[in-house]
Simulated assay, not measured.
Amino acid sequence: MTTEILQETKVDNARNSIEWSTLHLSLTPPHRLPLTVMRAGTSRGLFLHRNALPHDIKDWKPVLLAAIGSIGNDERQLDGLGGGTSTTSKVAVISKSKIQGIDIEYTFIQLGVGEEIMDMTGTCGNMLSGVGPFALDEGLVTPTPGQREMTISIWDTNTRTKIFETFEVTRYGKYQPNGDTYISGVKRPGSAVKIQYLDPAGSVTNQLFPSGARQQVLLDESSVKATLIDVVNPFIFVDWRSLPETIRSAEPNDEKVLQFIERVRRAGAVEFGLAQNIEKAAMIRATPKIAVIKPVDDSVGDIFVTAYTMGQLHPALQLSGTACLAAAMRLNNTVPSEIYRIKARAQDKSITIVHRQGPISAIVDGDGDSIKSVSVIRTARRLFEGYYVL
């Protein structure tokens, strides 16, 4: 049934707020949006069926901003289901695929915290770990009788990437969330969800190294050494050793550090070709992503990473960042591979990356010049299902 859900309301332009328009959506009255809340990897977000949203993607923004709670630039997201952080302000839109050989299509949306922003320029690997479990529980894919493990194919519409996802199934044909797999940043164990990215290079830019260089200097006055690489998501990996002393000696969430890292990210966005200039790069907050890397003790892992997202310190590491960094560590002449080769373990397929919450491992199939696939393990759990009242 078609229902008018939002009346035309003008919001103060000085607050950079959106101007509402009258929208007609196919929602159950009284203006309810069916959704599921899931913890997927180290993220939490809303999972929705594609047919629960307007046909035209440009009409999604007011609905999703309302559901997450960012209307009126609310940093606390009190009127929504977000958690006041970038890692809990995410949406996964799921549908059956019409593409031959693909089971499910996944569209990722990053929503702003304290900003009325909807960004679809990149993807989220953590949210991806909930796609298969959601699809199974919602009847979008069907196991065979007695099947206890299931592998499905997923098409990431943001990055035009094919993914295989493997997860456990209960004897009742539903997702089995319980298990003994721990991932850093999540206190409760769960069943393993294996994610395999196939041919992940050039996911957004169609090039492995969009700037044409495997290493380069950003911010000439500071000589920041970095690798700009596009595997699963475009990332800027900055060599911690090249940062100014004032930045290296400060806490990673210090405001001066956040501002400096964002300056580097914007410069990298221009080099990536994702923004025409620094001013336009400031308007694209989610892509490219940026992380600072440095050597780590052999007994702990292979490399240490501090990640940033939407201008803030990331509490752990994006799953796409795990895949991208692991790939960069296997490719010749990159900043990550230089740090990794200090350990003389460059031919190992298994790579352990250490972030602020602990270690995460990835399996990389590739050589010094190309990447065939990257695999990682996550867990996921359905937390809530119901309606958001718009």
Rank of each mutant, 00 (worst) to 15 (best):
A67H: 10
A344K: 09
N333Q: 13
R50T: 13
Q347F: 10
E8P: 02
D298M: 09
T334C: 06
F304W: 02
S320C: 12
T334K: 08
L27R: 09
D230V: 07
L228Y: 12
Q347H: 10
L78N: 08
T309W: 02
T181C: 06
S350D: 04
D298C: 11
R341L: 15
L383G: 15
F272S: 08
K194W: 00
T85R: 14
A275Y: 00
D367I: 03
P34A: 14
T142P: 08
I342P: 00
S350M: 02
V37M: 15
P288D: 04
P252M: 04
A282R: 11
T28R: 09
G212Y: 02
I195N: 14
L46D: 01
G132S: 10
D74N: 13
R148S: 11
I117M: 11
T166H: 03
H49G: 13
P177R: 09
T88P: 10
V364I: 07
R378Y: 04
R50Y: 12
H24W: 02
C124G: 13
T227Y: 12
S26D: 07
G112N: 02
G190M: 09
S86M: 06
T144E: 14
I94G: 00
N13L: 06
T42A: 06
T88A: 11
V335G: 06
A316P: 01
A362M: 00
T144L: 08
I94Q: 01
L6A: 05
V231T: 06
M127N: 01
K98V: 10
Q7D: 13
Q196S: 12
L228A: 13
F134E: 05
G69R: 09
P336M: 06
M329C: 14
R266F: 08
C124R: 10
S184D: 07
G185N: 01
L258H: 03
S203G: 15
A282E: 15
L319Q: 12
L243R: 11
H49A: 15
K372D: 15
N13H: 06
Q176F: 07
R50H: 12
D367K: 04
Y175D: 15
D369K: 08
W60K: 03
D348Y: 03
S17I: 09
S95M: 05
V169S: 14
I278V: 11
P145Y: 04
Q196Y: 00
I363C: 02
Q216D: 11
T22I: 13
R32S: 04
S299R: 05
I293P: 02
N13M: 01
G190Y: 09
S86G: 04
T161C: 10
Y340S: 12
D298R: 14
V335E: 06
I247T: 11
R171W: 07
T205K: 10
A267F: 07
K194V: 08
Y197D: 00
